[in-house]
């Protein structure tokens, strides 16, 4: 099982801070494609992905228990 976290406009679009779903074996790119379709997310392709709190590339494969977060362009400071 995996925990998926959404922030900022993505959280508003999904309507949840996080969801639990099994994504093991999928790549980050596949996860993005799946969620974009499932939740009608238009801006997911501009978001970075973090796996276990570290930025991850599109080719990274998800393992059981990984925490995945989508990071829209940041605006701290």
């Amino acid at each position: 099982m995996n925990k998926i976290l959404f922030f900022a406009h993505l959280k508003d679009a999904v309507g949840e801070e996080s969801i639990r779903i099994d994504l093991a074996g999928k790549t980050v790119a596949e996860v993005k494609e799946f969620l974009a379709k499932e939740y009608q997310l238009q801006k997911l392709d501009t978001a970075m992905t973090a796996v276990n709190e570290e930025f991850a590339g599109d080719d990274e494969v998800i393992h059981p228990g990984d925490e995945i977060a989508f990071i829209p362009p940041v605006s701290g400071g």
Partner: peptide, 14 residues
């Protein structure tokens, strides 16, 4: 929500 103030996204490598 404000994003991308630097008009580019963060780098995957950090």
């Amino acid at each position: 929500w404000i994003g991308d103030q630097l008009e580019k996204v963060a780098y995957p490598t950090g």
